[in-house]
Every structure is written in structure tokens, then in C-alpha cells.
């Protein structure tokens, strides 16, 4: 394989990896931005999305339906979590929900093991997605290209929703000045609930996309949660624009480091996070919010 093919390969790998991080991290950011909840169960919700996809395909369902079914399932679970656990805690300091979601992560992991077992599961893909596609000098897996398209579609839809719909405008306003939103008669509780469910839906989308890519197992969300937190910290807590830049940056740095200096790949990623925390605590674009 020539140098150009390797470069194209690495760019696409970076985009796929960064894209999955992005969807999870954006979900975390939306939840934090409007609810001031650092959702440590987000990785488990991502895993639930992957299991929902696995179950649907296993029952003979269409693979593409999983991209609707998994977010729906995770969104409904998110709604229950918000109503039963998060909402009553909203008036309390953030540390309460931090501990609560930390415990919830283990409860969810236990449930995943109970219902689906501890074994690694594989999601069967349609035949055409197991092939490669010729992109100039490089042969690239069709499924990874489908993931890239899906991520672009999800991000496009999200931007439209946040920019063009009343709910989206309310969410952005509530993230900046929640009191003002309440003052103009918007039901802030409803907006916060919507944001929590939307964050969970995004975790479900990411799980449905990543399940066939990385395989499905109960604690698959733990590593993803950590990577997404790195994205959130580098991008700035609660900053959507920052998350996009950070996810792309992490995708590129991790992929290139794995290629050139494998042993130090993750060291570089975490070192970058530490430097951002010290020198740019509000993230890459300076939009981060802190309690």
C-alpha cells in the first residue's frame, strides 16, 4: 500500500473514531449544559443502545432499523431515569447526581449482564456492508463509510434541531441563562427533561453504530465514557462547538499516535487533556461552563 493510501486510510479511521466519540460526547454535553448533571451512566446507556441493536438484528430485524430502534429504547430508559432519579435531585448540589449516576452505571451494567449474559456479541451486518469500497488508492470498509454518513446525518439533524426548532432554541437559551428562559414563560423543567432524553438518544445512536464496529459486551461503555469525557474536557464542558473540534482532534491524535508511536498513544491523549485543563480550563474554544 502506498503512502497516499495510508494517509487516506488514517484520515478515515480518525473520522470514524472521532465521530463515535463525538456523538457520545455531544450527548454528555447536552445533558450537562442544561441539567448540570455529569452523567456517569452515559457509557452504560451507550452499551444499552448496542444491545438494543443486537437484539433487533438477532430477532431478524433490518439492520438500519436499529438506528431508530436503539435510540428509541435508550431514550425511553433515559426518560424514566430523568423522571425517577434526576428530577428529584435537581435542586441539590451536582455531587449528588454525580454519585447517583455513578451507582446507576453499575446497576445498568449488572442489568446488561443479567439480560444478555457476559459474552461478547457480534451484530450481523447486511452482506454489502461487509465489503470494501475503492476510494482512489485505498480499499475502505463499506460499513465504516456508512458510519461516517450516519454520523454526518445525526450531526446535521442535531444542528438543525438546535438552530431551527423552538425546542432547540429554548435548549440553547436555557443552557446559557436558564432564569431568563423561565422568565419568558418557557417550561424550564420540560426543556431540561428534553435535553436529558436527547442526550440519552444520542448515546443510543452511538451504541447502535459502534456495536457492529467494536462488538457488544456489558462493560463496553466504560472505555467510551472515559474517551468521551476527554473530548468533553478538551472541548470545554457544555460546549457543542468545542466537542466537535475536540472529537476530531482526539480521533486524529489517537489514530496517528497508534500508527507511529503505539506505546505512547493513550499517554499523548491524556497529556493533551491535562494541558488543556491547566492552560485552557474553558476548553479549546473557551466556551466551557463550570459549576
Amino acid at each position: 500500500m502506498g503512502a497516499l493510501a495510508t494517509v487516506v486510510d488514517l484520515i478515515l479511521n480518525s473520522l470514524v473514531l472521532g465521530g463515535v466519540f463525538l456523538i457520545v460526547a455531544i450527548g454528555l454535553n447536552i445533558i450537562y449544559g442544561l441539567n448540570r448533571v455529569m452523567n456517569l451512566a452515559h457509557g452504560s446507556l451507550y452499551a444499552l443502545g448496542a444491545y438494543a441493536g443486537y437484539t433487533l438484528v438477532n430477532l431478524g430485524g433490518n439492520f438500519f432499523l436499529t438506528l431508530l430502534f436503539a435510540p428509541l429504547v435508550v431514550g425511553l430508559v433515559g426518560l424514566v431515569i430523568e423522571r425517577v432519579l434526576i428530577s428529584p435531585m435537581r435542586a441539590r448540589p451536582m455531587v449528588y447526581t454525580l454519585i447517583l449516576t455513578y451507582g446507576l452505571m453499575f446497576v445498568m451494567d449488572g442489568c446488561l449482564k443479567y439480560f444478555w449474559g457476559k459474552e461478547t456479541r457480534f451484530i450481523a451486518m447486511p452482506e454489502f456492508m461487509t465489503q470494501t469500497l475503492s476510494l482512489g488508492p485505498v480499499q475502505y470498509p463499506v460499513f465504516r463509510l456508512v458510519i461516517l454518513l450516519a454520523i454526518a446525518a445525526v450531526m446535521g439533524g442535531l444542528m438543525l434541531m438546535l438552530g431551527r426548532t423552538r425546542m432547540g432554541v429554548n435548549m440553547r437559551a436555557a443552557a446559557d441563562i436558564p432564569e431568563m428562559v423561565s422568565a419568558v414563560g418557557v417550561n424550564l423543567r420540560m426543556v431540561q427533561m428534553g435535553a436529558f432524553v436527547l442526550g440519552c438518544v444520542l448515546a443510543g445512536v452511538a451504541g447502535a453504530l459502534a456495536g457492529p464496529l467494536f462488538t457488544v459486551y456489558p462493560v463496553m461503555g466504560h472505555g467510551m465514557l472515559i474517551s468521551s469525557f476527554v473530548v468533553v474536557v478538551i472541548g470545554g464542558l457544555g460546549s457543542l462547538r468545542g466537542a466537535i473540534y475536540a472529537a476530531l482532534l482526539i480521533g486524529v491524535v489517537q489514530t496517528l499516535a497508534e500508527f507511529f508511536i503505539t506505546d505512547l498513544a493513550m499517554v499523548l491523549v491524556y497529556m493533551m487533556m491535562a494541558l488543556i485543563l491547566v492552560f485552557k480550563p474553558r476548553g479549546l474554544v473557551g466556551e466551557g461552563k463550570f459549576e
Binding site: 500500500m1 493510501a5 495510508t6 486510510d9 488514517l10 479511521n13 470514524v16 473514531l17 465504516r144 464496529l213 467494536f214 462488538t215 463496553m220 472505555g223 489514530t255 497508534e258 500508527f259
Partner: peptide
């Protein structure tokens, strides 16, 4: 979990 970069190295 993602072996893509290692596979790129094998190809290269």
C-alpha cells in the same frame, strides 16, 4: 476495540 489503525499498519 478498534483495530483499524493496526490494520492500516499491516497494510502499509
Amino acid at each position: 476495540t478498534d483495530w483499524a489503525t493496526y490494520i492500516s499498519k499491516i497494510k502499509a
